[in-house]
Design a protein around this nucleic acid. Structure first.
Lengths: 221, 221
DNA sequence: TAGCATAAAAATGAATTCATTTTTATGCTA
DNA sequence: TAGCATAAAAATGAATTCATTTTTATGCTA
């Protein structure tokens, strides 16, 4: 099903992906220096492709490059969330609108299927799988807009708060609430009711952001 | 006034900027291959920092990297504009809203001053200066939101259509119209009338996009 | 002479090397 | 022994080198 990753993509792109994973998996922690030598050994590459990847990650604002002093994983501050939230809100609202216009029945079925899997993971308390499916559902809604720009910007921002969002191992209460919101999202999308969809997406995002923010205020990333 | 560019910034970042300029100034043309050796000589650098810069530019979607076959300057297609337009619209609308809430009197004066300079350039038919000031005004509105995310995403998208927009050496009619729209923008902003501002920004952008689109359909970038 | 196969040249990808800067370690002085 | 100066080690920045791939040139065959 999935394409062989190493086939079409370049070494450098793989490195970008690998470092993203290292950050997400918590091997590289916010604020921490990224030691080139160590990462090179871990990925069995030389410094050249690593440094190329670091430049790209810096332009994505996942890390910061301090001249002569190495790269550091960025931490999200409250202000970052406050800035990102309204922008993501605007993107989600637009996406909801466009998706309702453009989505095909097959795509709705696809999302429904992801939704049910996710629902099962919620029941089983499998947060990791839930999280993964959650991301995929939102990405699928974005993809349904057929608008590459919105997909790209959304995933750029989503990538930045992904770590914090994952760590936001929120309370059972919030989790239940999020699941309920997703029921409504699926319902509105199935009916292609864009005004309702955008409203729910907005609420959903707002709540998520609050959760994320409360989490990063405790620990910081 | 301006900081010494070579002081704080790194070589690699300068190279990114230089290549952006080469693209914008038309030395590197859409669809054209970017010959590493030539650019290295022109910028008096080795291939390493150049290649780092190319990776960054690719992640910004200004160029495309074809494995083993070099880098090419991206051309905008009609579909790209169609995708970018609603997203920029959503960003501008949000920016108008936020700017009206956040902007200081000093910032309004600053924008007014830019506006009058631009108006003079319009009268004199100095398109280059007009264009430059136009960009600065829009960036200043974005900056007034105090929202770094919106500034960043806006400038990312603005950077992509910059070439086409510049080439859109639109008709005198459209230019006059654009200038008139800017009068309204300044007025709404001065009064912090966000609903009017967002409306005008939207119209203004829509017109700009139409112009850009009609231009890229003739020549392509 | 058109089209193909092969060889040579050029370009790219990535490792290595070297210069420079930063960090850490060592020892000296008050 | 605290604080500073100096030396050594480590890390970073960027050029160079080498391997591989692509492109171009050459010559051969039908």
């Amino acid at each position: 099903m999935a394409e062989n990753k190493t086939e079409q993509t370049t070494l450098h792109n793989n490195v970008v992906e690998s470092i993203r994973d290292l950050i997400f998996e918590g091997e590289l922690i916010g604020g921490q220096r990224i030691p080139e030598k160590l990462i090179c050994k871990k990925l069995s590459i030389s410094r050249t492709p690593l440094r190329e990847a670091l430049k790209v990650l810096a332009s994505e604002q996942l890390i910061t490059l301090l001249p002569n002093r190495g790269a550091r994983v960025n931490r999200l501050k409250g202000k970052d969330i406050d800035d990102m939230f309204p922008v993501m809100g605007a993107l989600e609202a637009l996406a909801g609108e466009l998706a309702c216009k453009e989505i095909s029945d097959a795509q709705i079925d696809e999302i429904r299927s992801l939704h049910y899997q996710m629902s099962a993971d919620h029941k089983n308390g499998n947060l990791n799988n839930y999280f993964e499916l959650n991301q995929r559902i939102h990405a699928a809604i974005m993809a349904a807009t057929k608008n590459t720009t919105i997909c790209e910007l959304y995933s750029l921002l989503a990538g930045r708060i992904r770590i914090a969002r994952y760590r936001a191992n929120f309370s059972k209460n919030r989790w239940d609430q999020a699941m309920a919101e997703h029921e409504k999202i699926l319902d509105a999308l199935s009916k292609r009711d864009s005004s309702r969809l955008t409203k729910i997406l907005r609420t959903h995002l707002e709540k998520t952001c609050e959760t994320v923010k409360s989490v990063i205020e405790k620990e910081s990333f």
